[in-house]
Design a protein around this nucleic acid. Structure first.
Length: 497
RNA sequence: GGGCCCGUAGCUCAGUCGGCAGAGCAGGCGGCUCUUAACCGCAAGGUCAGGGGUUCGAGCCCCCUCGGGCCCGCCA
C-alpha cells in the first residue's frame, strides 16, 4: 500500500464516499448469471447495424476500460476473462439520473456489471445497450495508460496484476502456458504414467549438480534443502514397484537468474521401468509433435507461435554428440583425448572453466561452442561421452559412451534423458568420483538412494523436461520471465531513513 | 563478477549547448445521442530513483548507492 496517493486516487476515494452516502455499496458481494462477453458479442454480431435485440436481457461483468462520453450517449469498453464488449450507455435507456451517476462515479479500471440488450452500434460494433449498471468493485489505483499499457519491464514483473489487467497479450500468454503444461501432463497420463508428488524439503538435495537453497526445520532441529531435481525420489518409486511415474513441479537452484535460468523453475520428470532411452525418445517425439499442434490451436494468430511450432514438428534431426562435435570443430579422436588435450582445445575457444574441472566439462564447452549455435529445429543430441554424464548407463554398443539424449532448440536445452544406471555398486562408485572431482558444496551424496538401489531397481529410462523453457520456446519469447507469473526480483530499495 | 544502457506527473514519453519542468492519456470543470487511442474548451497535477560534488545556476556534468534491461562470464 503506497503511503501517499495521487490526486487521482483521492478523487476515487471521494467517489466511494459519495456512493456510500447515497446508500450504494461500492463492493457488493456478487453478480450472478453473467455471461462471458464473447457470447454476447456473438449474439450482437448477428444483428444488423444499429439493431437492438430487445427481446432478452443479458448480464455481463468485468473491468471498465475506456469511456467515450458523447453527450447523452456514451460508449465504454468492458473487459472480462478472455474477451471484451462495448457497452452503450444512453440517457434514455438508463434514465437520466442513472446515466449522470454512471459518468460521475465510474472510472476506467472499476469492476462493473451491466444488464441490457445485445445490439450493434450504427457503426457496426457488437455492443450491449445497458439498462442497468452496477458497480462491483471500485478501483482506487488508476489503470495504466489505455493505449500503450504498462511498458516498464520492471513494473510488469513486480506488479504482474497490473500487467495482466492491462494487457490481453499477457493474459493470453499465461493461459497459453497453462494449456501447454496441461498438454504435457496429459501426454504422460495418457501413456499410463502415474502422477506423484514427492518432497521438496530434503535433508540433502541430489540428482543434479547445482547449489541448493538451504532452510531449517524447527521441529526436526535440522537443516533442510530445497530439491534441485526430482530424479532420486522417482527412482526410489521404481524400486518400490511403481513402474511408470512422473512429477511436474518446482525445483530450486540457488544460482543466477538470466534469460533462460530462474532460481525456481518447473520440471517434468518421468521414469519408465523396463524401457530404454530409445522408447523414451519415441514418447518424447510424440509429446513434442502434440505440443506443436496444441500451440497452434491456442494461438493461431501469433506468427511467432506458428514459427516455433514448425520447429517442434517431426521429423527431428539426430546428432551423435561425438560425430557432430568432430565435424563442426575439425577435431578428431575426442574420445581418446586426455584431460590436458581437452583443456587446451577448450582454452583455444575461450572457455574459462577452471583447470581442475573434470574432463567432461571441457567436452561440454567444445560442444556448446561448435555445435549448439548450429541447432534451430528441435534436435536430439545422442550418445554422449561417458565422462560428461555420470548418472547414465554405459552404451550397449558404443564404447566410452552413455545411452543419453538431450533435446536442443535454438541455443538452449529443453530436456535430457538416459537409460538409467541401476547397478548400486557402480552408482556408489560414481558418486564417490563426483565427490572428489567437484567442489564439495556443489555435490550431494545421498546414501539412502544407494541403499534403495541395493533392493533392485528395474532397468529403466528417465527424462527431465524444462517446462518453462518449452513454454518459452513455443510462445516464441527470449526471456523466461515472460512465462513466469512472478519471477524473482530484488526488493524495492528502502526509502532513505 | 565485468561491460553497455535505462530510471522525468498515476501511465506513455519529450526535455537542444548547463539558464523558468513539457506533451499525450488518465483525473477535475464545461460542451456534444454512434464513439471505439472519440472530439472541442478551461484549469490542475513534479522528492526529475536516492545521496553527495562541481557551478552564479544541474533533469542535463562528476562520484557513490538502489532498482531494472541487454551482452559476456558463472550455472558440468
Amino acid at each position: 500500500m503506497p503511503e501517499e496517493e495521487s490526486h487521482l486516487e483521492a478523487e476515487r476515494r471521494a467517489k466511494i464516499a459519495r456512493l456510500r452516502s447515497a446508500g450504494i455499496d461500492p463492493y457488493p458481494p456478487a453478480f450472478p448469471d453473467r455471461r462471458p462477453s464473447r457470447e454476447v458479442v456473438a449474439i450482437a454480431a448477428a444483428l444488423a447495424e444499429g439493431q437492438e435485440d430487445a427481446g432478452r436481457s443479458l448480464r455481463v461483468a468485468g473491468r471498465l476500460g475506456t469511456i467515450r462520453t458523447h453527450g447523452k450517449t456514451s460508449f465504454a469498453d468492458l473487459v472480462d476473462g478472455d474477451g471484451a464488449i462495448q457497452l452503450i450507455w444512453r440517457s434514455d435507456a438508463l434514465g437520466e439520473e442513472a446515466y449522470r451517476r454512471a459518468l460521475a462515479d465510474l472510472d476506467p479500471g472499476d469492476l462493473i456489471g451491466a444488464e441490457g440488450a445485445a445490439a450493434r452500434s450504427r457503426r457496426g460494433e457488437p455492443s450491449l445497450v445497458a439498462h442497468r449498471i452496477v458497480l462491483l468493485a471500485k478501483a482506487i489505483a488508476p489503470p495504466p495508460e489505455k493505449y500503450h499499457g504498462l511498458q516498464d519491464p520492471e513494473e510488469r514483473i513486480r506488479r504482474r496484476y497490473v500487467d495482466l489487467l492491462s494487457s490481453e497479450e499477457s493474459r493470453h500468454r499465461f493461459r497459453f502456458r497453462a494449456e501447454i503444461v496441461r498438454a504435457m501432463r496429459g501426454h504422460f497420463s495418457d501413456a499410463g504414467f502415474l502422477e506423484v508428488e514427492t518432497p521438496i524439503l530434503l535433508p540433502v538435495a541430489g540428482g543434479a549438480a547445482a547449489a541448493p537453497f538451504v532452510t531449517r526445520s524447527r521441529y526436526l532441529d535440522q537443516e533442510l534443502q530445497l530439491r534441485i531435481a526430482i530424479e532420486l525420489a522417482l527412482k526410489r518409486l521404481l524400486v518400490g514397484g511403481l513402474e511408470r511415474v512422473f512429477e511436474l513441479g518446482r525445483c530450486f537452484r540457488n544460482e543466477d537468474l538470466d534469460t533462460t535460468h530462474s532460481p525456481e523453475f518447473s520440471m517434468l520428470e518421468a521414469y519408465w521401468a523396463y524401457a530404454d532411452y530409445g522408447e523414451m525418445r519415441r514418447l518424447t517425439e510424440e509429446l513434442f509433435a502434440r505440443l506443436a499442434r496444441r500451440a497452434v490451436e491456442l494461438a493461431p494468430e501469433r506468427e511467432a507461435v506458428r514459427a516455433s511450432a514448425a520447429r517442434f514438428e517431426p521429423p527431428y534431426p539426430t546428432l551423435d554428440f561425438v560425430d557432430a562435435l568432430e565435424r563442426a570443430s575439425g577435431l578428431s579422436g575426442v574420445l581418446e583425448m586426455t584431460a590436458d588435450d581437452l583443456r587446451r582445445h577448450a582454452r583455444a575457444i575461450g572457455a574459462t572453466v577452471p583447470d581442475a574441472s573434470p574432463a567432461g566439462v571441457f567436452l561440454d564447452k567444445l560442444f556448446e561452442h561448435y555445435v549448439e549455435p548450429t541447432i534451430d529445429h528441435v534436435t536430439f543430441v545422442v550418445d554422449h561421452p561417458a565422462i560428461t554424464t555420470p548418472l547414465a548407463k554405459r552404451h550397449r554398443a558404443k564404447p566410452g559412451r552413455v545411452e543419453r539424449f538431450e533435446i536442443f532448440y535454438r541455443g538452449f536445452e529443453l530436456g535430457n534423458a538416459y537409460t538409467e544406471l541401476n547397478d548400486p555398486d557402480e552408482q556408489e562408485r560414481r558418486f564417490q568420483e563426483q565427490l572428489h572431482a567437484q567442489a564439495a558444496d556443489r555435490y550431494a551424496y545421498d546414501a539412502d538412494f544407494v541403499e534403495a538401489m541395493r533392493f533392485g531397481m528395474p532397468p529403466a529410462t528417465g527424462i527431465g523436461l524444462g517446462v518453462d523453457r518449452i513454454a518459452m520456446a513455443l510462445w516464441g519469447t527470449e526471456s523466461i520471465k515472460d512465462v513466469l507469473l512472478f519471477p524473482q526480483t530484488r526488493p524495492r530499495s528502502a526509502p532513505p531513513s
